[in-house]
Amino acid sequence: MSEAVLIIGGGPAGLAAAASLADLGVEAVLVEKEPELGGTPKKYAYSKLVPDLRPAQETLAPLVQRVQGREGLRVLTDARPTAVSGKAGDFKVRLAGPAGEEELSAGAIIVATGFEHFDARRDTKYGYGIYPDVVDIRDMERMLSEPQLKRPSDGQVPQRVGFILCVGSRDRMVGNTYCSRVCCSVCCVQAIEVKEKNPSAEVYIFYMDIRTYGLLENLYWEAQEEHGVLFVKGRVGEILPRDGQLMVKGEDTLLRGPFEVPFDLMVLASGMEPGEGTVQVAELLNLAREPNGFLAPRDSHTAPLEAAVEGVFLAGADLAPKFSDDAVAEGAGAAVRAAAFLRSRAGR
């Protein structure tokens, strides 16, 4: 019988879970496979976050701070679980880390293994990875973190920038049929950032429909009204190079019909997929996955943060595409569910 909780994944969800457990006085171990905490936003140097355009690093720093030097909380980076045995209340977990292998006991496990961006090389229409000036939103976050936005091929400031929504989402050809939920909003924010850095740039967003859901609806208004970002209804069919520029072809399905226009930089709103860590941990813990590959909760209505495997709790983008603020909320929620679970067993 162990009183400790193992948290797998040190992104926003895992960090929030670890801090919450420390607040509750529950012993915990946080394991992160990367050398640094902060998850995908850290790994890919995200620039500004939805909805308020706050710098990502400014929001990550306090999350990381809250898990440092806490009593009863061990934080291991560069480490990952390699084998799990036992059952709820007494999991035996083998960890591989920089100091070699170790085994630890955990009463409960929180899985917060997150997502990976869709690999846009799988969508052959857009030539991602073969034309340097076709980038994805992940690359764009890093590029926008620099003082000036430059296009990769020649370091010039791009004057015509286009965004293509739904790359690797809602598309049977690439195999991902779900909506990745965040990309519409992220692209609105990135488009605004492009205009902030270079107000003379022409920025277009090519959309099938805009899913800046809920309170995020203002993002595309702001992008249009305050920054002059242009929206074209139509999914781009293909990108091809011509004379040092990118020829972008598609159909404006509302107004202009077919178009073939040059751009300096094209940004693909590559969607979200379960990360490699999520796939591995699902196998280790025998966790059910829903048809798109994300982790499936025991009951999405009444137990949205619990796996069908007793003693295993779920949080963050390994469950479905979501923003980091939702992931933080779920991390805290999963921590409470795990603490309650351990307490109920101890009382038994």
């Binding site: 429909d209 209804k233 139509g234 999914r235 159909e251």
Partner: peptide, 11 residues
């Protein structure tokens, strides 16, 4: 069909 126009872009 959601009128995305990818097909027509290639046509």
């Amino acid at each position: 069909c959601l009128n995305c126009g990818v097909c027509t872009g290639w046509c």
